[in-house]
């Protein structure tokens, strides 16, 4: 079992490595993609600088906390889109019968399918996240916590996309649901927690768990709270398990296809 996990991990890393090599074939595009993503993210901070010049506290957040929030949102997005880019195209993979080549390999189908390519610009998001951490206040403790939440958040974002995409095994055109779900997760991730009230507040801690990916980590990094920390861990494990469960349940309904497909 341990050996199997080790081998699976090795293949996943190798897959990511080869996908990265592919992206690096054109150096100029590779570097500009990363730099422009950092600049793109930085441009959003300008509006917050303007807002905080008028008010010290918005929705219970200081300017520094907003920076940290943006940092976590960017790094979790970057982590997930870099390592698991194909989780965001999984519904297309399922609908067009592109799982065949992974199904004949003695490895985990889901992991093989979602680690088959990387998104270059996500490296920019990832780096941007850590730049924000440095501005917020670097310490070993903050660095470890930030990295931990990046990984947990990345896994949650990926799991959500996998769960929604797996609906393709049952319904056609579920890609619309996937796109909506994924964009809700990002668009609800970068505002101070305090501005959300009522139903939206409940939603961001349950069905659209942007709160667990972004707001709880900011709270823990501002003032450590073991209970909240455990909630993040339990939620991450539950969602990952659910993603595997639903995907494998759906896989039994997989119908393949005879489309001409190339791994490019």
């Amino acid at each position: 079992m341990l050996m199997e996990v080790k081998n699976q991990f090795k293949i996943t890393l190798l897959s990511v490595k080869y996908a990265l090599v592919r992206e690096m074939l054109n150096k100029t595009t590779f570097i500009t993609n990363i730099l422009f993503m950092i600049l793109n993210n930085a441009s959003f901070i300008i509006q917050w600088i303007v807002l905080y010049s008028l008010k010290d506290n918005i929705g219970g957040y200081t300017f520094n906390q907003v920076l940290l929030l943006w940092g976590i949102a960017a790094s979790t997005y970057g982590f997930s889109h870099f390592f698991f880019k194909n989780a965001y195209y999984l519904s297309d993979t399922i609908n067009n019968g592109k799982l065949d080549s992974f199904l004949v390999q003695p490895k985990n189908v889901l992991l093989s399918a979602i680690t088959n390519s990387v998104e270059t610009s996500a490296i920019g998001d990832f780096i941007y996240g850590y730049i924000m951490l440095f501005i917020f206040g670097f310490s070993i403790k903050n660095f470890i916590l930030f990295t931990f939440f990046t990984i947990c958040g990345g896994f949650i974002l990926t799991s959500i996309s996998v769960i929604l995409s797996s609906l393709s095994f049952w319904f056609n055109k579920s890609d619309i649901i996937v796109d909506t779900g994924n964009s809700l997760m990002t668009s609800l991730a970068t505002y101070p927690d305090g501005i959300f009230k009522g139903i939206v507040k409940i939603l961001i801690y349950t069905l659209i768990p942007a709160g667990i990916v972004n707001y709880i980590p900011v709270e823990i990094m501002t003032e450590f709270n073991i209970n909240l920390f455990l909630i993040v861990i339990i939620f991450t494990i539950t969602l990952i398990s659910l993603a595997f469960l639903i995907f494998y349940k759906g896989l039994k309904r997989y119908s393949s296809s005879n489309l001409m497909v190339a791994r490019i």
Partner: peptide
């Protein structure tokens, strides 16, 4: 599968 490619093209 003659119609499906398994190799990494790059």
């Amino acid at each position: 599968f003659g119609q499906k490619e398994q190799l990494w093209t790059h």
